[in-house]
Design a protein around this nucleic acid. Structure first.
Lengths: 231, 231
DNA sequence: CCCAATTGTTTAAAACCTGTTAAGAATGCC
DNA sequence: GGCATTCTTAACAGGTTTTAAACAATTGGG
């Protein structure tokens, strides 16, 4: 697959190495941090697709790290816990961990859970409401359907995602960089201008008069925004 | 808490009684079997919501019991194993156990895991009605039977589960990743595309015109959905 | 009004996605 | 053990989508 980035956070070097071995073998790019502060710093730097996080850490502990990270991003987290008590499990889940594994664990099981969580969350651009209605435009994210004036629109996956990002926050201007981040993903290596082409195609499908857009407006020098105002 | 049924399978009466005590206290209805054959028989009779299964059993051993049960139903299984070796753990997982607990165990821990597994599985696979009717298609999850236009469909276990997941939530698009998790289990190590083959085979069995599916629709770039709309 | 920066538009090639087939592996059944 | 069924992988064809590149049109500031 596409070499997803995984950050391991544990103060036990041996454990880190063990996990590293197994995850590298599965084709992931693996980064390691040995305390909470480093974890937060590294996470901001490499934008991992998933974090394996020990509960017990020197300095900032796992729960705190998890909360800090979650405040700024949606990165999925798998918690490593030493104790099996129910309390720990619940704490882990409450802070938003996507899964938890209790030590001692089998590295293969951890690898399986990593795969599972990644599978689950890779597509989770779908945060927010299931449906959005903006005037005659209606988007249903569960069904992956968009209708205009009741008529079904035939949108490509990119178009659907792009329109989704814009329509979810009407009036907000998104720079091309931000749109790329939200729609294409962090590791997109292409040009800004690709966004323009998608906007163009989108306009042709949803605008009554594509030359004078009513929904997707251009903000010169800034980006694009969805204009729900006119109704 | 609606008095879920739990089946305990262990040849050690003392252990059975111990577990029974704790689980009854949590409001579950507890049934017990002392060997593999009885377990299979009883499972068919009472349709338990979860099974606690000892790996070592007289007659049919735990693994075999687990496989036999899984072939016919989605009931979640917690394995009891005497050894902590990784091998046992993996064996348990490969046969589809949802969790495992090593002896000696604390009954409170087991009770916690029972709750956890029930929470997990209730939300995913076993939720919803015992029967679902979508146009000419009818699925009975108790009997593990599906009929189309009154005629019994010969579906494989995978096909049945796949169709079940889709048909339970018509209109909702499931990515391959989600389907894998719901149908194959989180520890599936294979490819997305396996889903496609199952969908193909399923279509050949349930679609009047498999080339232009009416029930299982493809959503390009997103996944598959069950379309109940046409009726 | 002119210029440079920014955006709109077109096209073709590259990348991607799904349907399908077939063969090998795993599983269950006598 | 051998047979039948089921599951998984691999490969290819065909279609769709995405991207890069180039050029045209527009914008806003000086």
């Amino acid at each position: 697959m596409t070499g997803k980035r995984i950050l391991i956070v544990d103060d036990d070097v041996k454990i880190v190495e063990l996990i590293k071995l197994y995850l590298s073998r599965d084709g992931y790019k693996v980064y390691a941090a040995y305390d909470g502060n480093e974890a937060v710093r590294l996470a901001r730097e490499v934008h991992p697709d998933l974090i394996v996080l020990d509960l017990m850490l020197p300095g900032m502990d796992g729960l705190q790290v998890c909360r800090t990270l979650r405040a700024k991003s949606d990165v999925p987290v798998i918690m490593l816990t030493a104790k099996t008590t129910e309390q720990d499990k619940l704490l882990g889940l409450e802070t938003g961990a996507d899964d938890y594994v209790t030590k001692p664990f089998s590295p293969r099981e951890l690898a399986a859970r990593v795969r599972a969580v990644l599978r689950r969350t890779t597509e989770s651009v779908n945060v927010g409401p299931k449906e959005v209605v903006r005037g005659k435009l209606r988007m249903n994210f569960d069904a992956h359907e968009a209708t205009l004036d009741g008529k079904l629109l035939r949108l490509t996956p990119m178009e659907f995602r792009l329109l989704g990002v814009l329509a979810r926050e009407p009036g907000v201007v998104f720079s091309r960089a931000r749109l790329i981040e939200k729609v294409f993903g962090y590791d997109f290596e292409g040009f800004d201008r690709t966004v323009d082409v998608h906007v163009l195609n989108l306009r042709r499908k949803i605008e009554p008069d594509p030359e004078h857009p009513r929904y997707i407006k251009t903000v010169y020098g800034a980006g694009y925004k969805f204009d729900g105002g006119g109704e």
